[in-house]
Design a binder for these strands. Structure first.
Length: 546
RNA sequence: AGCGGGGUGGGGAAGUCAGGUUAUCCCGCGGGGCUCAUAACCCCGAGAUCGGUGGUUCAAAUCCACCCCCCGCUACCA
């Protein structure tokens, strides 16, 4: 990969009505974190931003349920989630929120620009309104009897029983999902974004975007083939960013139409806080910048169509997503994660059970790159015990304890022909392969490639049997093989750093370095360890579970 | 229903777009080896009609048609 000007690495903003679950974690923040860390190690200029998505009906409803203000609910959850991301080792440069003043100001002036550019128009529509809650109800917040199959709990958009698409006014005996009152249908004015106007430019964008995962490219092209429809920008919600349009008093901007702009506003906020209020422009208006999004498949159209459309419509020359990496879904024991049905594991409870790198490894190993993948407990156990503990942990431990016992805790000095050793050649090759996988965001393949170094290390060690060499008095032979193993361990520490930051650093310290592995460059992985370096008494890296 | 993605040994995943020697990897299982190491490690082996049916081809997991099943989206859930 050529060195480029700037990287804007981003991941989907979690909706903070609740703590994210493991599926959200692998699809967005964790994947983005690996790439952000890798790019930084490569010496690239990276800014990694995301934030809490806070507006809209579900949060308003949750706040009503708990008898508190939406803002109070969001403050609480934003703080909690910020803290959790920190504990998960997600290396954001800025984790912002849609309640940030920078975001709100940016969004309001951005939409005024779109209006001036002729992409916003108003129209009257008729929508369900709950007279008791005093709010307009999104389709899914109206339930009633399905007119086709008679199912009692059909939602206003689709019947869960027969699968038919519905409209709220088609439901028999409709009721408000929040309070069960029968909704009225009221006329209200809304502002729309003229998406069809941008269709030719969007088609060109989708066809030419340098990196879109297959699911993202195909489904976007398919939507374009069907033809885009205007998208409403405003809502009658109380909880949101006040719409800036003349005559739109009391309206807010639809969450999706503002949250995606957070990528820009979070960059602005980051540089304002650093005292360089103009610097964000170097990232967003430089044609060589690479704007990368990590999302789950449900988010695809918002990142491949709506966001680019908004950015284009501003006519200010924003960079469009250079890459969109969309994962399939992580399932839990074969089922969708569901808060209401308590199916799944959430990122707070995960950390109460096991160390963060156990989770990071398992999630990255399972990353649903081509299809839905199921998380199961037996699989979790297998990966932790066999991969982390037996293969990686034991390789490092056996080499270090041998070094400690036989070479008095010093990296032995090898004969100069050590460089011809098979394991070293394997490490060099795997370094290249890992780099090229990461360059194309194939995180799963990259991780497997790194881990296979430990496997090869074990094999090499068994073959060379330095313990046998020592017994026969062949200290030179033992020195070479242990030296090569220690060098491989150094490579492992560097190459694991983007994936398992804590364990990688433990390995790094374990071979006697006193700084942080995260200060090192990626290329350091193929620089041999210095003979004579003192290594501390080894400690096991992982422990088996259950 | 339409559109997008998927179905590969017992489990989990690559490979499919550019068809081609014994279908790859991680586990599990059976046997053997080693004894530095956390009962860890290494080697060998068994185990697959590549969702189904039909077609194209000298040759199909891969291309075409139809069917079955799983997931997502379908524009006011986010």
């Amino acid at each position: 990969m050529k060195k480029v000007a700037k990287w804007i690495v981003t991941c989907a903003w979690p909706y903070v009505n609740y703590v994210p679950h493991l599926g959200t974690m692998i699809g967005s923040a964790l994947s983005a974190d690996v790439i952000a860390r890798y790019l930084r190690m490569k010496g690239e200029d990276v800014i990694f931003v995301s934030g809490s998505d806070e507006h809209g009906t579900p949060i308003e409803v949750e706040a009503i349920k708990r008898g508190i203000e939406p803002k109070a609910l969001c403050d609480e959850n934003h703080l909690k989630i910020t803290e959790l991301f920190k504990r998960w080792g997600i290396s954001f440069d800025n984790y912002s929120r849609t309640e940030s003043p920078h975001h709100k100001d940016f969004v309001r002036s951005f939409y005024m620009k779109l209006m001036r550019n002729g992409y916003i128009y108003e129209e009257e529509v008729e929508l369900p309104f709950c007279p008791n809650c005093q709010i307009f109800l999104p389709d899914r917040f109206v339930t009633g009897q399905c007119p086709y199959c008679g199912f009692e709990d059909a939602r206003g958009d689709q019947c869960d029983n027969c699968g038919r698409l519905l409209e709220p006014d088609k439901l028999v005996k409709p009721r408000c999902t929040i309070c069960s009152t029968s909704p009225q249908f009221k006329r209200t004015k809304h502002w729309f974004f003229d998406l069809p106007k941008l269709e030719p430019e969007l088609r060109e964008y989708v066809e030419k975007a340098p990196f879109l995962t297959e699911n993202a490219r195909n489904s976007s092209l398919s939507l374009l083939r069907e033809g885009l429809k205007p998208r409403s920008v405003t809502r009658d919600n109380r909880w949101g960013i006040p719409a800036p349009f003349p005559g739109a008093e009391g309206k807010t901007i639809y969450v999706w139409m503002e949250a995606v702009l957070g990528y820009v506003s979070a960059t602005i906020e980051y540089f304002v806080k650093k005292g360089e209020p103009e610097k964000w422009k170097e990232y967003w208006f430089d044609g060589d910048s690479r704007f990368l999004c990590f999302i789950g498949k449900d988010n695809i159209p918002f990142h491949t169509l709506i966001l680019p459309a908004l950015l284009i419509a501003s006519r200010e020359g924003y960079v469009l997503p250079w890459g969109v990496s969309a994962t399939e879904y992580l399932l839990f024991e074969g089922q969708k994660f569901s808060k209401s049905r308590r199916i799944g594991v959430w990122i707070d409870e995960a950390l109460e059970m096991y160390p963060v790198d156990y989770w990071r490894y398992v999630l990255l190993y399972l990353r649903p790159e081509g299809r839905d993948v199921s998380f199961t407990w037996p699989l979790f156990k297998e990966l932790v015990n066999s991969h982390l503990n037996d293969t990686l942990g034991n390789f490092v431990y056996r080499v270090l304890s041998f070094t400690s016992r036989v070479f008095s805790s010093k990296v032995p000095t090898p004969r100069s022909d050590w460089i011809k050793e098979e394991l070293w050649e394997i490490v060099l090759e795997k370094f290249q392969r890992t780099s090229s996988y990461l360059d194309s965001f194939r995180i799963k393949d990259a991780l497997q490639e790194v881990m296979s170094i430990a496997r090869e290390g074990n094999r090499y060690l068994n073959e060379k049997a330095p313990w046998d060499a020592i017994r026969k008095g062949l200290v030179d032979e033992a020195s070479i093989s242990i030296y090569v193993c220690l060098t491989a361990i150094k490579s492992l520490a560097i190459m694991l750093a983007p994936f398992m930051p804590k364990s990688a650093n433990d390995i790094w310290r374990g071979i006697g370095y006193t700084n942080s592995v995260h200060e090192e460059k990626w290329e350091e992985a193929i620089k041999p360890i210095e003979p004579g370096r003192e290594v501390p008494t080894p400690k096991p890296l992982f422990t088996k579970i259950k």
